[in-house]
């Protein structure tokens, strides 16, 4: 369920210079936002009594490798229990400086999502309290969901036995 047109208008007017574009997608309204305005925007949609987003459902990223000028796009989904509506926010991030402000101060549930996003895409969430890898092991080098990560690269922790060296026990 999407937010009403009045609320979309209200958000657009308030963040006129920060919203790059916004459109109605199939399922919800999408705001494409400058990353400087992200914290203010999230705080507004959290505290505004008509929009009142209470939960961050997901944070992930998209890698537009060699398809767009701005390589990454961090995608946020917000949900309101009381109003039963959702918002999607996209923030373009350059490859040279992949930094986004962390929203863990506003939504503590964003903590692990941002860690996963760092783990898989290498996006740095500034002011995150504990930005470590969450799914992969600390010895892992690189970020595997980036499109330029080699598809057949493996980083094993134990020595792998080659097929010709495999012995059957007697």
């Amino acid at each position: 369920m999407t937010i009403s047109e009045d609320e979309v208008k209200k958000v657009r007017e308030r963040f006129e210079s920060d919203i790059i574009s916004s459109y109605q997608d199939k399922d919800m309204v999408v705001f494409i936002l400058k990353k400087e305005a992200l914290l203010r925007f999230v705080q507004f949609i959290k505290e505004d009594p008509d929009i009142k987003m209470e939960q961050v459902t997901d944070i992930t990223a998209v890698d537009w490798y060699q398809k767009r000028d701005v390589r990454f796009e961090v995608v946020y989904h917000f949900y309101s229990y009381t109003k039963n509506h959702r918002i999607r926010v996209k923030v373009p991030v350059e490859e040279q400086d992949p930094k986004v402000p962390s929203i863990t101060g506003l939504f503590s549930g964003a903590n692990w999502f941002e860690r996963e996003c760092w783990d898989m895409y290498g996006i740095v969430f500034v002011n995150h309290p504990d930005l470590r890898r969450i799914l992969l092991y600390p010895e892992f080098v690189g970020h595997p969901l980036r499109k330029d990560y080699p598809i057949d690269k493996r980083q094993p922790l134990v020595k792998l036995i080659k097929p010709e060296e495999r012995r059957e026990r007697p």
Partner: peptide, 16 residues
Amino acid sequence: NNYATVQGIDSIIPVD
């Protein structure tokens, strides 16, 4: 067949 998965456990321990 990706970055995370061991391609058969016989590459780490012997299998009967």
